[in-house]
Design a protein around this nucleic acid. Structure first.
Lengths: 356, 356
DNA sequence: GACTGGCACTCCGAGTTGCCGAGTGCCAGG
DNA sequence: CCTGGCACTCGGCAACTCGGAGTGCCAGTC
């Protein structure tokens, strides 16, 4: 009866908003469906259960709430969560000790793989959800230097340092053999010639050089080119593009108390392609993003929520950090956490870059 | 009544052995408790269910079998599995394609962390259990060379190559600053001076050198020593000492169909200390080892089995490879798998060592 | 017109009962 | 020593009951 719609039709009555807000909060903390009676007893409304029932019925009609079954309380829908996050949520400040933990741990690492691994573990630990860190590609990665070290007869370790301080290393096996001195020379040559270029550009340039006349006669140059190409070649897909940590945190969540859903979820986490797709989509926008339920189709079952944020320098995002958990999670706590970690990573990377 | 014991009292009648064998095999493949009727119908015995019941009752009295409840079939006990493995099991040959897979994958990797990570994934995939690879310590690790590469103002990547071909690298942060040339010199000096020594020995020697008069006056030598010590210092606990892979394979095992046991198991896998203890114990003996149920106390619940083997050169085992799964697993398949992978790893390491 | 108490209705879940089938132990006979 | 037969036990399934929780709606009150 009582139409609780704004004149615009897309906004809720302030009372309805309060009710929705309270329901989300209560449901997140208890996991139960929320009844009119428990709302009334919460003391936040001076209303009887019957009145609240009217409001709730309206919210249900509008698609913000739903009933698991006839004689149960109400639970927020995707849409309910979405409205909550967009209009009702008050992000808490990140507690100081979490800030400290993040700063401390981040400052102690240097290699990129280490940092990303750490970040995902950190996220998982602090959020008690699954932590995700995604590094999409290194092709736009500009280099500062490239060094080659002899490791065995025809195995050479190649160390690439990015202008952003990121360090990548890999071992290449070459048919050619090199002496230490040759490698030293090559290191210097490449570092000087190619500093500031992206891996992609370097690769193209090296390939072009193969075709040039001069290269044919200079055997040293030939060797340099061959080694350079091999070094740049498949550095791109770093061993793990996607760092996932803390899948076991799912175990304690009540939404996974039955083994079937749990299994499905784990198997879904196994095949990372879908997650990569989802995260890649996040890469285009910057700032914090929250995906709820069917907004991201991770595992057909739409019981999940994702909080993510890009990191990297302002105009060139490097990748994504985020968490994945059940739809019913404390977004007001997760949001600042992910946001801060993203900032910390970005800062770290920028610092390393300036540092020389 | 019919005492089916050998004169020695510790051996079983040949019929009893056959029955036990069949029960283990059937139970492993089906997961069900085995009834006298199904044994009789298997066709391996020309006996009626009633006769088999007598044998089974004896086996139960002797502790090789047990009944989950009165009107259920029998299931092997720890002791039953132990007897099966020691006396009844015929190890199958490893199928050729698995041999090929292992050889191929192993031959494509070089860095130690890569190899170990790969091995654990490989084990998990081929066994459909949890794969474990453990590298206990690098202190007895003898080096062939040590190189230093400037990565940023005061960050230096240090690459240690072992005489066994193992490559370890880490980044050290130093208060001192070095030029490329200095680092080159230091690399050569250390590689020449210390080749063939263990990290432990190198460390001791460097520390001793600090105290010598000469060092006080030679600033280059001072720098060398400082850097050397930092490089050697905490290379020991490599980031992950224990590689665990495939915990999710537990999900599909019927013994973990209830969420509680599953949860306990995952949490137990989280804290790796206990596993490290167990594996360390395996290090002293060489050859394949199988631990069943209460023989290793992983997770108080004694439902697990471990198949493990040391790898490394003959007189100096480097670590352990193995799998962990429910007690009910195909030991006859797991044993050759773990064994072969252990051999492959050892061979790989030896080859790398010779190769120059 | 907004709020409230009351009442009938629905549905879940826990507990109870009864029953069937599977499997055993034991005994007596071949 | 083996076997068929019989009585016994137990787990699991299905049907049923019943109380509790929660809703929707209606009529009454301020």
């Amino acid at each position: 009866m009582t139409a609780r719609l704004d004149i615009h039709g897309d906004e809720l009555d302030s009372r309805a908003r309060e009710v929705l807000r309270e329901i989300v909060i209560q449901h997140v903390s208890t996991g139960e469906a929320i009844s009119s009676r428990s709302l009334s007893k919460s003391g936040r409304f001076n209303l009887s259960p019957a009145s609240l029932r009217n409001v709730m019925a309206d919210l249900e009609d509008l698609g913000y709430l739903q009933q698991p079954h006839t004689s149960a309380g109400r639970v927020p829908t995707d849409r309910g969560y979405r409205f909550f996050i967009d209009h009702l949520m008050k992000s808490r400040r990140l507690p100081q000790h979490e800030i400290d933990t993040i700063n401390e741990e981040v400052s102690h690492t240097t290699e990129i793989e280490e940092v990303l691994g750490l970040a995902s573990r950190l996220l998982s630990r602090l959020s008690d959800q699954v932590g995700m860190v995604f590094m999409p590609t290194l092709l736009q990665f500009t280099i500062r230097s490239m060094d080659f070290v002899l490791v065995a007869e025809n195995k050479i370790m190649c160390i690439i340092v990015g202008t952003n301080g990121v360090v990548v290393n890999k071992i290449v096996e070459s048919r050619l053999s090199f002496t230490r001195d040759e490698l030293d020379k090559i290191s210097r040559y490449i570092s000087v010639e190619f500093a500031g270029l992206t891996l992609d550009a370097i690769r193209r340039r090296l390939v072009r050089m193969t075709e040039q006349e001069r290269a044919l006669h200079d055997s040293m140059l030939q060797k340099t080119i061959a080694l350079g190409i091999e070094a740049v070649d498949d550095v791109t897909p770093v061993n793990h593009e996607l760092y996932l940590e803390g899948a076991e945190s799912m175990l304690t969540k009540r939404e996974f108390s039955d083994a079937g859903a749990l299994r499905k979820t784990f198997l879904a986490l196994q095949e990372k392609e879908k997650l990569v797709d989802i995260l890649n989509a996040c890469l285009v926008e910057d700032g914090l993003q929250i995906l709820i339920g069917s907004e991201s189709d991770f595992t057909n079952i739409h019981n999940f929520g994702i909080v993510a944020r890009s990191y990297g320098t302002h105009n060139a995002p490097l990748g994504i950090v985020g968490i994945l958990g059940p739809m019913r999670m404390e977004y007001s706590r997760m949001a600042p956490l992910v946001d801060y970690l993203g900032r910390a990573l970005s800062r770290k990377i920028e610092e390393e870059g300036e540092q020389r």
